[in-house]
Simulated scan of single mutants.
Amino acid sequence: MGKGAREATARERIAQLRHADRKKDRNRRLATMVTIGTIAVLAIGGGAWYAAARDTAEKQTAAAQLAPTTVNADGSVTMAQAGVTKPVLDVYEDFQCPACKALEESSGPTIKNLAAEGKAKVVFHPITIFSMEPTKSNSVRAGAAARCITDGAQWPPFHDKLFAEQPSETVEGFPLTDLVAWGKEAGVTAPDWEKCVTSQKFAQTQLTQSDKIIRTEKIDGTPALKLNGKDVDSDVAFVPAKLRQAVLAAGK
């Protein structure tokens, strides 16, 4: 094969790879939009179902009684009583994702309660699923700020605060000054907290780890729950009673 032919083949291969990357990116955005659209339909068109899910939300265990929480080196966060290794409930979420906020409002207390009761080992994976602006940057700022917390006891309240303050997808949100202030409100006491957040020290790590998780765990959209490695259907994930039942059954 001549030099010209080799170069043409190389260019062709690069074009194919770029096309594949664009296709995966479109699919990821579509999956996320579908998830969000589904929740929107439930919240508006099928309001009764969504309202019922929220109305049946469990009362969350008091903060002082939450299961011990550990911030892991890869940015994931484990919430579990000592000695509890299964069942494992993995929660993949994006702080900018409206559907994730909906999950937090309906099943968030159940997830934390199951860990507190010693019924499950819960692992949170805060990732950035969005690729378009301003949602991508909003997500990265929030995710990078959460990575600045190394004290497990201080992570849950900040996690909850981020969802409570989630901005609209159409505007630039999660400003750095607010993230710093919210962390202090949530009880973050690390001396380098403000510098870590405002410098966005872990922004690139947030992106790199997110891409790795999305690929290896085949995450198509958020929120995504996996119970002992198996996907949890949304009609279970968003209904507290059904989610509790599924976790308890998996622990038998």
Rank of each mutant, 00 (worst) to 15 (best):
I214N: 05
L30S: 08
Q245T: 12
V171G: 07
L89C: 08
A31R: 13
R215T: 11
A153Y: 14
W49L: 10
K3F: 12
A48K: 13
V71K: 12
L225S: 04
E105N: 10
A144K: 10
M79A: 12
G46M: 14
N228V: 04
E104H: 15
E172N: 15
A82C: 01
K242R: 13
G47P: 02
A57F: 00
P109Q: 06
L30P: 00
A43Y: 03
L30T: 10
A190R: 09
C100S: 12
S139V: 01
R54V: 13
D160I: 05
T110P: 07
K136C: 06
A115Q: 04
F130V: 00
K136S: 09
G83N: 14
S210K: 04
Q154W: 15
K184M: 07
A142P: 09
A20D: 14
K23M: 12
E93S: 15
T85V: 10
G152T: 02
V91A: 07
T56I: 03
K112I: 01
D178Y: 00
R18T: 15
C97V: 02
K230T: 15
Q96G: 07
P223S: 07
G173E: 03
L42D: 05
A190P: 02
S137N: 10
F158V: 05
A62H: 07
Q16G: 11
R22P: 00
L176I: 05
P134I: 01
A62F: 02
T9A: 13
K136M: 12
S106M: 11
L30I: 11
A102F: 09
A62Q: 11
V91K: 05
